[in-house]
Structure formats: C-alpha cells, structure tokens
C-alpha cells in the first residue's frame, strides 16, 4: 500500500498515526497481501459468490413498532446531551 493511501484512510476514519505507526502498519499490511497472493492459484471460474459465512439466510421480522428503551436510559452514558439531543463537537461548516 502506498503511504498516501494510508494517510487518506486515516483522514476518512478520523485517525492520525505517527510515522513509526505508519511504517509498522504498511510493513504488516504488505506482508498480509503477499501471503494472500497464494489464493490467486485457486481456480474460482465456476464458483458462486459466497454471500455469507454462516448458512443462515433470510432472518426477518414482521413490521411492528415497539418502544422498549427510554431516551433517558440510552443517553446515560453520553458525554454530553442537551434537551434530549446527543451533543457533539461542532462540525466545520
């Protein structure tokens, strides 16, 4: 992976790594990619896409509205709230 790509990903995920951390991650990531190349040898021509690792499909529920949790309970762990809103640092406009 290119260093610039990693820096872009950091930006997307609100991270900022030190140069040492970047070096370590890039080394680890490239090694991973190298190892995965072994998979290229497998012929997947007529293999269907595996849609999920578990053989469980179509887990659905009926369309019924229920209220189980109170707003107060849900906001107990919030660092800041205001009049029922979660309060977060202002976004740059």
């Amino acid at each position: 992976m290119e260093r610039e790509t990693l820096i872009l990903l950091e930006k997307f995920d609100q991270l900022s790594l030190t140069d040492e951390e970047r070096d370590a991650f890039l080394k680890f990531y490239d090694k991973q990619l190298e190892e995965k190349k072994a998979l290229d040898a497998v012929d997947t021509e007529n293999v269907e896409r595996m849609v999920h690792v578990m053989p469980i499909m179509t887990v659905v529920r009926e369309d019924e509205a229920k209220k189980i949790y109170s707003r107060e309970d849900l906001q107990k762990g919030a660092p800041a709230t205001s009049e029922g809103y979660w309060q977060v640092p202002r976004l740059v406009e």
């Binding site: 887990v59 659905v60 529920r61 369309d63 019924e64 509205a65 229920k66 209220k67 189980i68 949790y69 707003r71 849900l74 906001q75 009049e83 029922g84 809103y85 979660w86």
Partner: peptide
C-alpha cells in the same frame, strides 16, 4: 423495531441498535 413515524420528540424513536451501541444486531424488517 423502533417507530418509523415522521415527527416525534427528538430521540424518542431510538433503541441501542439504531443509535449504534456496540454489540447490537440488526434484524431485517
């Protein structure tokens, strides 16, 4: 299963799943 109705007081139609609490699992309607 939270209500999808329009309106309501702020954060009145929420639960751990739709406000992103860790460990909650979605079940499709």
């Amino acid at each position: 299963s939270c209500s999808a109705e329009f309106g309501g007081e702020q954060n009145d139609h929420v639960c751990p799943a739709c406000c992103g609490m860790p460990g909650m699992l979605p079940v499709t309607n």
